[in-house]
Amino acid sequence: MDHTIDLTRTGRIGEAVSQIRSGQGKALMDAMRIELTAIDAVEARRLAERTRQSERASAVTVSVNALAALLILILAGISVWLVRRYVDEIESARMELDRLNAGLENQVRDRTAELTRANEEIQRFAYIVSHDLRAPLVNIMGYTSELEQVGKIFDHQLTTLAERHPEDIEPEAIRAVREDVPEAVGFIRASTAKMDRLINAILKLSREGRRALAPEVLPMTAVVQSIADSLHHQVVENGGEIVVRDLPTLESDRLSIEQIFGNLLDNAVKYQQPDRPIRIVVDGELTDDGRVHYRITDNGRGVSARDHERIFELFRRAGKQDQPGEGLGLAFVRNSVRRLGGVMELESELGQGSTFHLKFPTRLIVSGDAGDRL
């Protein structure tokens, strides 16, 4: 086309017409159309192939999505079934636990009522027996005094008779009146005094068991320090010491706590090792199970392993008996500890000292009618 136009501009119109009539332009256009058709065919094939690939990819995607959705539904169904089963098991276990707890509570309530009645019966029995024993004991003590007076009268008569008629008095009679009778009266007095102390101890246990507990928040460091101060003179005169460290507070019955620590500290001072000054340490802490743990440690005589339980029995004592007592102190202490909901344990070795472990609930709860711990 450019060549034909150039021919026309230069005035060579005939050559231009001849060029057009030769058909060369049409041949070139036809060749171009063929090439373009070929290109269109290649592009069509490529488009068709890419369309098929896209359709296959779409089909695969749809299939994967459908499979994933199916798996999700299956997993969701399994999860729902497992959760439902777990919930049913929990509900069943809870109902079973509630049933067992209800039965256990009833059993505990029944056993507690039985123990309370038995304890009250024992206390009443001890109180009645103690009073019944005291009456004849008072009579024995009264008649012992009369016997003592009679002995004095006989002794005076023997003295008078010896001055007037010494030959009529036998030595056996003098020995009986002046030695045997006073000795017998002395034994009777000692025995009645011991029985009187035992009766008083039984009455003390009975009264303590019937006393209503009154919980209050106790600053234990100050409470125990006050008890230690009351023993200060007995301790320091032999070069000893009582160390009261910081103690956790406790909500419990003040009188019972004072009696418990008072008895234990007094025993530690009483049964100290003669060859070394007594050292007593009182410490404590809160435990992981929500209780309060106190320790009373001394370097006294200690207790043999075979007597660790014996010393807590009524009227039972262990070791050398060179101190006054009736074997009621530690029995009273353990009974008081149990009544406050605590436990008491002994760790001791003969000649090496002792450690008494006391564990109490941080808060004592008592019923309003019986005064017993819940």
Results as ranks from 00 to 15, higher is better:
L137G: 10
L100C: 01
T160H: 07
S348M: 01
G103R: 11
I365N: 08
A135M: 05
Y127T: 13
S54Q: 12
K359W: 07
L7P: 04
H131D: 10
N335G: 07
E91C: 04
L328P: 00
E121K: 07
R339D: 04
I13V: 14
R301M: 13
R276P: 02
S230D: 15
F332R: 09
A370N: 15
E167V: 09
V366E: 03
E167M: 06
H233G: 01
L264F: 03
G262S: 04
I260G: 01
V243A: 09
G368A: 12
Q323I: 07
T37I: 08
R301E: 14
L158I: 14
V87R: 14
D246I: 05
R339C: 02
L36W: 10
T112I: 00
G290R: 08
S348D: 02
Q107H: 13
L358W: 04
S18M: 05
Y294Q: 01
I242T: 02
I174M: 15
L133Y: 12
N299S: 03
I278H: 00
E237F: 01
F360N: 01
K320A: 08
R52I: 10
Y86A: 10
L67E: 11
A173T: 13
G25A: 14
A113S: 11
L67F: 08
D132E: 07
N106Y: 11
I5M: 10
